[in-house]
Design a protein around this nucleic acid. Sequence first.
DNA 1: TTATTATGACTGACCGGTCAGTCAATAGAT
DNA 2: ATCTATTGACTGACCGGTCAGTCATAATAA
Lengths: 229, 229
Amino acid sequence: MSRPRTVNATPSERLASARRSASGAPQRATGKRKARSAARRDAILAAALEEFSTRGFGATRLDDVARRAGVAKGTIYLYFRDKETLFQELIRAMLTPLVGTIEAMGAVDLPVRQLADRIVDLFVREIYETRRKDVIRMMISEGPRFPKLAEFYYREVLARIIAAMRALLARAAARGEVPEGLVDFPQIIAAPGLVAIVWSGLFERFEPLDVRAMMKTHIDLLFAPRKAA
Amino acid sequence: MSRPRTVNATPSERLASARRSASGAPQRATGKRKARSAARRDAILAAALEEFSTRGFGATRLDDVARRAGVAKGTIYLYFRDKETLFQELIRAMLTPLVGTIEAMGAVDLPVRQLADRIVDLFVREIYETRRKDVIRMMISEGPRFPKLAEFYYREVLARIIAAMRALLARAAARGEVPEGLVDFPQIIAAPGLVAIVWSGLFERFEPLDVRAMMKTHIDLLFAPRKAA
DNA sequence: TTATTATGACTGACCGGTCAGTCAATAGAT
DNA sequence: ATCTATTGACTGACCGGTCAGTCATAATAA
């Protein structure tokens, strides 16, 4: 047995190691190393996105992620505690930037129709035509088995977006631009977006779907001027 | 999906096995045996539903399915060729009965509003408050990695429902009960249903959603009388 | 500046546990 | 007795996670 292995590592050593990985980059680093380190992390996340989004969490092999990232498997564990952490960090990294953008949009005070158009545009450009579409699909697929992840997504993303929408819709409703009912269910506005995301993953090849047109139609129907009740 | 783990089995063996399993029951059977056989199959499917829908396809262990069904693991293989076949049969068995019901509904010629109410009711009673909700969730989650399954679902379920809806909407539009736009995107009608299914799996515990109310609101908004263009 | 030492990022062979699928043995029906 | 259905121990591919060892780079000394 010529491969001696160290069997002992004090609890504190283990803890230190765990803490390190949590930070997301191996130890401290300066200059060249720091840059390289960040690049590596990104490469791993990019590879993970590719693999996770085509194979799903369970069927993804970390060996494949490593190969795709041009890195040894062990390296992944220098940047992420384990497979699950990698997965969650990936989703976090992809979705977090969106929130600010959307909240900002809700703050602007424009006629709802214009806002609606902007929202549709934002959705198509920043989500539907983007890898974020796949991230949301993953969220839907794997979320039920990752309660922590679902909670993060709800608290940091959804709840905020819904709050912004509600505020916006309430203002519009007060002006009579929008029926009151919508304020209770902002989800209705986003519903076709969800349909589009799911459809694209399952049925696009049988029957392509014009997302923009569908969302436009939906908005037109919801916001069309009505006869008085 | 998943890697084939069996490496040896002559083509003819495979065929024989396939032929038998395809029938869904071991050999021919009559009387008592036939009944027992059908019951077994059902027990396995029921157990599979339970396991697959909480753990997902990949993480479900056939050992667990067997235990839950009160059967030895090998027995599963008497009724289904492999894990994937079991999964697909399950979805097939759960969704197929729906199609007829929905198509029948589309054939009736009633004012859209009444039809809409019936459709909402059907959705809530036959899907949302049922295990079928979970089956559809599984379809969404696992579909992208089971092209065959997605195709079956599209051809046998979705396409038919959409066709029925389109016919119905076209009639209604001709009568001026419904805006023309809807005919192009029957998906819009179903969108909140999808939202409800996804929501229930991910966020119910943070923020319950009144599906009936949401769908009612949506329908009211879509079908409300409009000012003339 | 150049030489020497220290660091820690990176590697990849390896380990241990897991689980789909098999099949010889057994129970049960006819 | 014969034939079928059922069992569950077993196999082996597979993969997440580990860690001793390597070497480029950074820190320090000369």
